[in-house]
Nucleic acid binder design. Structure first.
Length: 271
DNA sequence: CGTTGAACCTGTTTGC
DNA sequence: TGCAAACAGGTTCAAC
């Protein structure tokens, strides 16, 4: 369920429930999921959680002891979840890491990921920064307009591929890329560098609006999501054959090739 | 170097 | 109903 808005919702819930908690114990189910590079989880025992942040689609917890901080980065992949559980809750298949906590509002945090796309990484500060620098480009919510404009201008590939290219723009996945392009009325296969500045501006504004709306809704990139107000989370994703929400008369189509692209053939022209 | 598609896994949905 | 194929929110690596 994880793109930027979902990761943001995870982070805000973790902040409210376990920020400041002390790590009492940890359990690793799959060493191939929890990458213990230079760091090992042993060090983390007895430390307290002092920072909780999002990087791209990943969630990063900072653990500290005696002014030294180390980090745990959780990639959620396609199916990864961080879940609060009570210590006597039964073991659920595909649980790869359990953190026992004390002093927060939740006694246990579990990493559950059936499809196992996604890892847990342990880093010191420089390790974290090096990793993030290599993997994550700008954040779509905070990138300055001028930087975004230049970055789009400089890419000759497909617009949708650019939106999902984490090393350039970190946080947007297939669902939100589709929504952003639909709301901007741009075909997924338009060439990024050929957009004019006015169009890029529209893309920039819509991108932030779509992501912020989704965060406000508590994350919507799940199938059959329905916001409390009864409005569907997505306009086009997974809506093949349904009429275009703009009532242009055409039906939503799907392009297969990279990932599934859902779009309206009249509202989003390829040119 | 930039871009594209297949591979990685398991669970669920779709179609015969 | 039963079974197999198709498909799924992401990232990485090889091939062009």
């Amino acid at each position: 369920m994880p793109e930027l808005p979902e990761a943001e919702v995870v982070v805000s819930q973790l902040r409210g429930r376990v920020l400041g908690a002390v790590l009492k114990d940890s359990w690793v189910g799959r060493p191939d999921i929890v990458r213990q590079g230079i760091e090992t989880l042993d060090w983390y025992r007895g430390t307290s959680i002092i920072t909780i942040q999002r990087r791209g689609k990943s969630v990063v917890l900072g653990f500290s002891r005696n002014h030294e901080t180390r980090y745990l980065l959780a990639e959620l992949g396609m199916t990864g979840l961080l879940l609060f559980r009570s210590p006597n809750a039964s073991y659920q298949k595909h649980t790869h890491l359990i953190l026992s906590l004390e002093g927060g509002l939740e006694p246990e945090l579990r990493y559950w990921n059936p499809r196992r796309f996604g890892r847990i990484y342990l880093f010191d500060r420089t390790g974290l920064e090096r990793f993030c620098h290599k993997r994550f480009g700008c954040d779509p919510l905070t990138v300055p307009w001028e930087q975004f404009r230049q970055l789009v201008k400089g890419r000759r590939g497909r617009l949708k591929a650019l939106l999902m290219y984490q090393q350039v723009i970190a946080g947007i996945g297939n669902i939100y890329a589709n929504e952003i392009l639909y709301r901007t009325r741009l075909h997924p296969y338009r060439t990024a560098s050929r957009l004019n500045s006015r169009t890029i501006r529209r893309l920039y504004d819509v991108m932030q609006e779509v992501l912020l709306d989704a965060i406000r809704d508590g994350g919507s990139s799940v199938r059959d999501f329905l916001a409390p107000n009864g409005i569907k989370g997505h306009l086009v994703y997974d809506k093949v054959g349904e009429p275009c929400p703009a009532k242009c008369g055409k039906r939503i189509r799907r392009l297969v090739g990279e990932r599934s692209s859902f779009f309206c053939p009249t509202c989003q022209r390829r040119k």
